[in-house]
Design a protein around this nucleic acid. Structure first.
Length: 730
DNA sequence: GCAAGGTC
């Protein structure tokens, strides 16, 4: 009898956490684990059954995409390549997405000698695309199987639960080439279109206006519509014409009760004369007659289980934390085991989710122990039905924590996530809404008030609670009140506010701009590029640059900024995914359209330039052009400290970490890079007085300074447009 | 130096 060597099945998930969960389920907890050679991914091994044979399973993962698309090297020279060439002529290539992870090598090491592969990538189009990235990497090194025997399998799962994972394992299919191709097409379109427009408008406007505070004027199918939403609101504010309107205000009282102010049922009128007529009609009577009293029990629903986008909204509006920052904090909380995986679209707890166990972990927290104990003794409420996106469970706390161990923002986010979780298993908030309808003369008025019946979940989410109001007077139909006053009040309509970040997130979600993972990136982008600033209350106010860009697109080709640009393309991409359209044809057709749009944009750029001229000064008018900061590529400005006899010099070098925006951190002074690595020698700055100052030198285009070693001990006062203002601390 | 999408 021939002794067969045991066969090996390689299994690959999209991220390390999933590989671990799935391996644990499939091995029934019996797998052994080791780190892979890149340090990021683990390999979980166990023996089991596959295709009616005993095999060795090796479950591992990638970290998102293995490859990313870029132009071949020589097309990345901005000075030598005409952006128009990026639409067709410039060849692209797939490069390793994160060279530090050496993912291809890692996969090949693990795949060598394997006989089968089961792809456990996320069940969306991106996941399908990663399937083929993995296959491209490993197929050359896998064992060549028996001819016509299937060796590549795709697991389709919709949640990370025992039943789902086992079902997927028992009904393996094949990866879907069309879905993967639709992602290839998206990548190529985004790259070619984004880079062409970005390079062209950057090069066109850069160096033209001295006070144009940007190193890079980027364009993208997600970031540009995101900016568009902010500017659209700005335009509404600008074009807002306040309108005067009139309201009938009536105050009535009964006995010794404090007077009630009533709401007019006509709400308001926009004509003074008409308003006066209604006053006269009301004044016929000195009494207000109660027409009806209604009491309705109303319910404020407990929240659905928490997903990423909702977490970002609340973090921004209630905690004042930006999305990018929130995700960083959330990821830290996740890797430290305090919360579940923070990137999910799902708002439904799975049937076997341990609600009570999760709640019990919170029993000793002083802040909400009382609510938790009450829930555990009276029984938790069944959570509201949410949406199962098939990715990850909702965001929940995983163990108890205290403020000291998490740090300020970490704690605030953890506290919110925990309060939200408790709220989802609490009762709804119930209140009584009382409405009293009055008639004064011929005019109808009413007043209403809310009284709490039971606070339910609002005890843990107090900011959603029913505000305490003074109770309405007890009365019944037919009662009469004395009219204390009735008058016509003049008021004006007021303009809308700038978009809050939370509103922007909602708009992006609604229009399909970005994903839960990329929404924070797009918002961060338009801040970093100086298109919008974050104002009080995390409202996003477009800058002159942001406004001019969007208005320019409107003038030239509004589709460049409308959210429909993305959805139209995605419609085409979906046809590829469904096998209803040819990948090459859709790609070429769409590229052709955008190539034409690009040429039209180039030909019409003067109409955007006209807007620029209004907002920015030509470089000649701003004095001599200074060199650019070597790091952020913006023009440097010379700044004098007011009220100081000391001279202060513009400086930007590696001692300071530059984020290209308004913040600067003094890092440990590292020695200046040796000028040997400098492609150009530093130009000297003359007339630098030394008394009380460190010797400072301008930074040159390549970002090299001399004598930066002595920079420690300087105070940084201001940073703007690539400039740091420094003076001695001593 | 550029896009957007995964994830660390």
């Amino acid at each position: 009898q021939k002794l067969d060597k045991m066969r090996t099945v390689l299994m690959v998930a999209e991220k390390p956490s999933l590989a671990q969960s799935i391996a644990k389920i499939l091995s029934k907890g019996s797998c052994t684990s080791r780190k892979g050679l890149n340090g990021a991914c683990s390999v979980h091994e166990y023996n089991g059954n596959f295709q009616s044979q005993t095999v060795r399973f090796k479950m591992t993962s990638v970290c998102g995409h293995v490859m990313s698309l870029d132009f071949i090297g020589k097309y990345n020279n901005w000075d030598k390549v005409d952006p128009a060439e990026l639409f067709s002529k410039a060849p692209t290539e797939k490069k390793e997405a994160n060279p530090k992870l050496s993912m291809v090598k890692f996969l090949q090491v693990e795949a060598r000698g394997c006989d089968y592969v089961v792809l456990w990538l996320d069940c969306d189009k991106e996941g399908e695309n990663i399937c083929f990235e993995v296959l491209d990497a490993i197929q050359p090194v896998m064992n060549k199987g028996i001819v016509r025997e299937q060796s590549v399998f795709r697991a389709k799962f919709s949640s990370i639960t025992d039943t789902d994972i086992w079902n997927a394992m028992n009904r393996l299919g094949e990866p879907n080439r069309n879905e993967a191709l639709s992602v290839d097409a998206r990548q190529e379109l985004d790259l070619r279109i984004g880079c062409a427009f970005t390079r062209f408008q950057t090069k066109y406007f850069q160096g033209k206006y001295g006070n144009l505070d940007s190193s890079l004027i980027s364009f993208g199918p997600c970031q540009t519509p995101t900016l568009g939403f902010c500017v659209e609101r700005h335009d509404k504010i600008q074009s807002f014409k306040p309108e005067t309107y009139w309201v009938l205000q009536a105050k009535v009282f009964k006995g010794k009760d404090t007077p009630l102010t009533l709401d007019w049922n006509r709400v308001r009128v926009f004509d003074r004369e008409v308003g006066q007529m209604f006053v006269n009609l009301a004044k016929i009577s000195k009494e207000a007659k109660v027409e009806s009293v209604s009491k309705k029990e109303k319910v404020k629903q407990r929240p659905q289980a928490l997903n990423t986008v909702e977490m970002l909204r609340v973090a921004s509006s209630a905690l004042g934390m930006g999305p990018q920052h929130t995700m960083q904090i959330a990821e830290r909380l996740y890797t430290q085991g305090y919360i579940s995986y923070p990137r999910t679209e799902t708002t439904l707890y799975h049937e076997n989710f341990d609600l009570k166990g999760t709640l019990k972990q919170q029993i000793n927290n002083t802040i909400w122990a009382e609510e938790v104990k009450a829930l555990l003794s009276t029984g938790i409420n069944r959570p509201r039905k949410g949406n199962d996106a098939g990715d990850h469970p909702p965001i929940t706390p995983m163990r108890s924590a205290s403020e000291g161990e998490l740090g300020s923002d970490g704690w605030r986010l953890y506290e919110y996530i925990t309060r939200h979780f408790i709220a989802t298993v609490s009762q709804d908030c119930k209140y009584l809404q009382t409405t009293i309808d009055f008639k004064i003369g011929t005019e109808a008025f009413s007043c209403s008030g809310k009284t709490l019946i039971s606070p339910g979940y609002t005890t843990v989410i107090p900011w959603q609670g029913i505000p305490l109001e003074e109770a309405l007077p007890a009365c019944e139909c037919g009662d009469t009140f004395t009219v204390e006053e009735i008058k016509l009040v003049e008021q004006q309509t007021s303009p809308p506010h700038y978009l809050t970040e939370a509103e922007l997130i909602t708009l992006m979600e609604k229009h399909g701009i970005g994903t839960d993972a990329s929404i924070p990136v797009h918002i961060n982008n338009i801040c970093q590029r100086n298109y919008v600033t974050v104002e009080n209350g995390r409202r996003l106010k477009p800058t002159n640059l942001g406004i001019v860009l969007v208005h320019g697109y409107y003038k030239i080709d509004a589709e460049l900024v409308l959210p429909t640009i993305r959805s139209a393309v995605e419609k085409q991409l979906n046809l590829i995914a469904q096998g209803k359209a040819n990948y090459q044809q859709v790609l070429q057709h769409t590229l052709e359209i955008f190539k034409r749009k690009f040429h039209y944009f180039v030909d019409s750029i003067t109409s955007m330039d006209e807007l620029m001229e209004v907002s920015f000064s030509p470089i000649a008018a701003t004095g001599k052009p200074l060199s650019r900061c070597g790091k952020c590529h913006r023009f440097m400005k010379y700044i004098q400290v007011s009220g100081s006899s000391q001279s202060v010099y513009a400086l930007c070098d590696s001692v300071f970490s530059c984020d290209g925006l308004g913040t600067v951190q003094v890092a440990t002074a590292s020695p200046a890079p040796s000028s040997a690595s400098s492609p150009r020698p530093p130009t000297s700055v003359h007339g630098v007085p030394h008394s009380g100052m460190f010797k400072l030198h301008h930074v040159l285009e390549n970002g090299i300074t001399e004598n930066t070693a002595g920079v420690l001990g300087l105070a940084v006062r201001k940073w703007s447009a690539g400039l740091v203002e420094v003076h001695s601390n001593k």
